[in-house]
């Protein structure tokens, strides 16, 4: 039986592999997935003091196209469409940069920007899926570490993960606006090594 399809391009391959990691991480909160290396180079930085987490940006972009919208932020403020990184993302994804309350996706380039979480859509009772998916860049994620204690769907009993270097304010921001099921935002935490932690709205988070 002959193959009738062309092989995947490097970007399609990245998008396909990334999706499987994201799906697995969201289905199993607390399981730390390893994202593949993105086929992007020379990505603009969100801020002079904050280098870009290319894996997180590429993972978010793997889900963007002209039918969806996004916002991104660094140091607790939303970046405008004129920012070089906004342009870089828009040109490659065709996604629209909108106001936070309308965003399908949010890319938070540093942990502190989690403070902006309450501005993002949480869905409605009729359409709880019309909620934001957030990609949050964090310094490091440690499987089995002792920062967060997670329970809920996808977790057999309890699981713990470590977020070294996380400030208590950041952790408080992470735990805000939860327990509203079926409403809520869904989060992916991605560290500098490309390790990924999924936190769907169903996960109950407490501190260890």
């Amino acid at each position: 039986m002959s193959l009738v399809a062309a092989p995947q391009t490097p970007l399609e391959r990245f998008n396909g592999q990334t999706f499987r990691v994201l799906l697995d991480c969201l289905a199993r909160p607390g399981k730390i997935g390893q994202l593949p290396s993105p086929p992007f180079t020379s990505v603009p930085s969100p801020a002079d003091t904050t280098p870009s987490n290319v894996t997180a940006i590429a993972a978010c972009m793997s889900l963007l196209d002209q039918t969806v919208s996004f916002v991104h932020a660094v140091d607790k403020s939303w970046l405008p469409a004129t920012h070089p990184l906004s342009r870089w993302i828009m040109v490659r994804s065709n996604a629209r940069l909108v106001t936070p309350a309308m965003a399908d996706f949010a890319l938070l380039h540093d942990f502190a920007s989690i403070a902006l979480l309450p501005q993002l859509p949480e869905g409605t009772l009729l359409y709880p899926e019309h909620s934001c998916t957030v990609f949050l860049c964090v310094p490091a994620i440690v499987a089995g570490g002792k920062t967060l204690r997670l329970t809920g769907p996808g977790i057999a009993t309890v699981v713990t993960v470590g977020l070294p270097d996380a400030a208590s304010n950041d952790l408080a921001g992470l735990m805000a606006r939860r327990g509203l099921f079926p409403l809520g935002v869904d989060l992916f935490l991605i560290d500098r090594q490309g390790f990924c932690l999924g936190l769907p709205r169903t996960t109950e988070i407490s501190l260890c």
Partner: peptide, 11 residues
């Protein structure tokens, strides 16, 4: 893929 992620988040 986007819809699958939402489906998993809202069992």
């Amino acid at each position: 893929r986007r819809k699958l992620l939402k489906a998993v988040a809202i069992p």
